[in-house]
Structure formats: structure tokens, C-alpha cells
């Protein structure tokens, strides 16, 4: 019976691992090894970092059986507030702290609506996406704010001159999230609530609090994402990020997270985010047009999900 468990876990991420190896090999050859140069690997990881961070928050929410479509709006609004505060001369650490608070507050509103009042996650977060990006644009009148060398230096510097700041940040978030999901009672309850909400409720678990917290975590990580993007670009604008929620969902789903809830891992999501970044990077190196890139990305996501679901149906047929 032990073997069965091992096989099952491989099955969950099996499709992705095969894909990641295949893609690495393909682009490695197609770009004549440029893909695997240390500088390029560093580039890939840096560009995966935002998606990785947001994807982890998304994973928490997806495990509860919900969805967070407000991440793009949240990041834009938080970035614009962050930029404005920096321009007003507020000390940088206070600005960063405020960004995390603002992001979490958006998550809290989502969480209360969905967890406490049982509103539909899809609709609530979609509305919140409009509201937050609207507030950000209104407040800054749609103008781009730029010039924050201080936080760029802090966030985007590199540790020992080797590990870029954003990658380090993603790694720290991933480790913490991994510990929370695997080793804490909160993590266990999260999977329970997503796996069978009624049984969780009947086991004396406070579903509302668990769900609410998941959205706050997602919001908090959006705040962190805003810090990351603002410092990386040294600017904040209403079009600085687009469709981050889709990339985040794609990373999570590639990593084996189930949209039905109850299933998902941090490791899977991180590998998913890196795989997506690698595809984009590889196609760029090959000079493929951005329009064609979109098609390739879509096809790959479709293929992985299809493989996964074939495996599942074969398993259940056994």
C-alpha cells in the first residue's frame, strides 16, 4: 500500500515534472545552451518571482475551493499608493509596511465577504479587482510614478552577489508557506475545509476563519508583490501588471493544485511558475513573436491539465 501512495503523489505532479524536463531540454538545445547559462537562469528566476509569490497566495485560496481574481487590481492599487508615499517622502520602511497592510486589507474584505457572509468568491474578487484598480487610477489620475532608487537597491540587490533579491524573497515566502501548509494545524484545516466543507464544519473546524485567513494571506502576498514590482521597475503605473491572476492560477494548476479544492502544494506552484517563466524566456531567446508565445503558453497549460485528467480518470477506472 505504501507504493500506491508514492505513485499517487508522482501522478499529481508527474505531468509537470515530465514537461519541465522536456522544456528545459528543448530550449536548451534550441538556444544552443544560452537558456542554461547562469546569467539566464538568474533572469528566469527573477521573472518567475512575482508569479511565484502571487501563485502561492492563489494556492492557499484554491485549496479552500475558492479563487482570487482581485490580485491584479490589488497589486496596481498598492503599488500606486506605495509610489505616492515614496514621492511624499515617507520613510521607505514605513512605505513597505503600509504596502503590506493595504494588500492585506483588500484580502480581508474579500475574506469577510466570502468566508463570513458566504458570497461567491468568483464574483466578489472580480468586483474587488475593478474597485481596487479604479481607486488606484483615480488617486493618481492615471499617471505613472517613478524614481525610487532606495527600495530598488534594497529589494533588487543580491545576496552575496549571487542570489537576486526577488528570488530570495520568493524562496523565503515559499519556505514559510510550505511550513504552514504541511506542519501547522492551520494548513491541515485549510485542506479539510477545501476537501469537504461540511465534514470540516462537523469536525468543529471554523470554516469561516480558515477561508478568511486564506484571502488575507493572498492579499498580503499581493502587497509583497507590489513592493517587488515597484522596486524592480522603479516605477508604479496602472498598467504595470496585467492578468497576474491568470498566470498565478496557471502556475498553481500546473503544479497540481485542484480548482475543486482540497489539493495543492507550494512546491508544485513554484515549479509551475518557473516553468512558465522558462517558456517565455526560451521563446524570447528564439525570437518568437509575443503573439505566438501566447498560443504556445496556452497549449502547454492545456496539455498538462489534459494529461493530469487522463491520469486521474485512468486511476479511478482501476
Amino acid at each position: 500500500m505504501k507504493e500506491k501512495k508514492g505513485r499517487f503523489q508522482f501522478g499529481q505532479m508527474g505531468g509537470l515534472i515530465i514537461l519541465a524536463v522536456f522544456i528545459t531540454a528543448f530550449f536548451g538545445i534550441a538556444t544552443k545552451g544560452v537558456l542554461l547559462s547562469s546569467q539566464n537562469i538568474s533572469n528566469i528566476l527573477v521573472s518567475a518571482s512575482l508569479n511565484g509569490v502571487i501563485g502561492i497566495g492563489m494556492t492557499f485560496v484554491l485549496i479552500t475551493g475558492g479563487i482570487d481574481l482581485s490580485v491584479t487590481g490589488n497589486i496596481i492599487m498598492t503599488s500606486l499608493f506605495l509610489g505616492s508615499m515614496m514621492l511624499l517622502g515617507v520613510p521607505w520602511f514605513l512605505c513597505l509596511l503600509m504596502a503590506l497592510v493595504i494588500g492585506s486589507m483588500v484580502g480581508l474584505v474579500n475574506g469577510i465577504s466570502i468566508g463570513r457572509f458566504g458570497m461567491v468568491a468568483f464574483v466578489v474578487t472580480m468586483a474587488m479587482n475593478n474597485i481596487t484598480s479604479g481607486i488606484g487610477k483615480l488617486y493618481t489620475n492615471g499617471l505613472t510614478q517613478y524614481g525610487f532608487p532606495k527600495i530598488h537597491e534594497i529589494i533588487c540587490g543580491s545576496l552575496f552577489g549571487v542570489i537576486p533579491g526577488p528570488v530570495l524573497l520568493m524562496a523565503v515566502v515559499a519556505v514559510l508557506a510550505f511550513i504552514i501548509l504541511k506542519y501547522t494545524d492551520y494548513g491541515r484545516q485549510l485542506y479539510a475545509v477545501g476537501g469537504n466543507p461540511k465534514a470540516a464544519w462537523m469536525s468543529g473546524i471554523n470554516n469561516r476563519r480558515i477561508i478568511m485567513t486564506a484571502y488575507v494571506i493572498s492579499g498580503f502576498l499581493c502587497g509583497l508583490g507590489a513592493v517587488l514590482m515597484t522596486s524592480k521597475l522603479m516605477s508604479a503605473s496602472s498598467s504595470m501588471v496585467t492578468a497576474t491572476e491568470m498566470d498565478a492560477i496557471a502556475a498553481a494548476v500546473l503544479g497540481g493544485t485542484s480548482l475543486a479544492g482540497g489539493v495543492g502544494t507550494v512546491g508544485g506552484t513554484i515549479i509551475g511558475a518557473i516553468t512558465i517563466a522558462m517558456i517565455t524566456n526560451g521563446l524570447n531567446l528564439m525570437g518568437v513573436s509575443p503573439f505566438a508565445q501566447q498560443i504556445v503558453k496556452g497549449v502547454i497549460i492545456f496539455a498538462v491539465v489534459a494529461i493530469d485528467s487522463f491520469q486521474k480518470s485512468r486511476r479511478s477506472a482501476e
Partner: peptide, 25 residues
Amino acid sequence: EGIFTNFEAKSNISSAMLAKLGFFI
């Protein structure tokens, strides 16, 4: 209302006693 199909037997048994096991299980 009883079983968690996404869990192994162990987590199914322990789902009501998590408070007793502490924040870090």
C-alpha cells in the same frame, strides 16, 4: 458530513483534535 476524501486515514482521525496538537502539529 463525515469523511475527507482528500485525506489519508490518519488526518481523517485527527481532524477534530487539531487544537490539542498545537499550532505546529
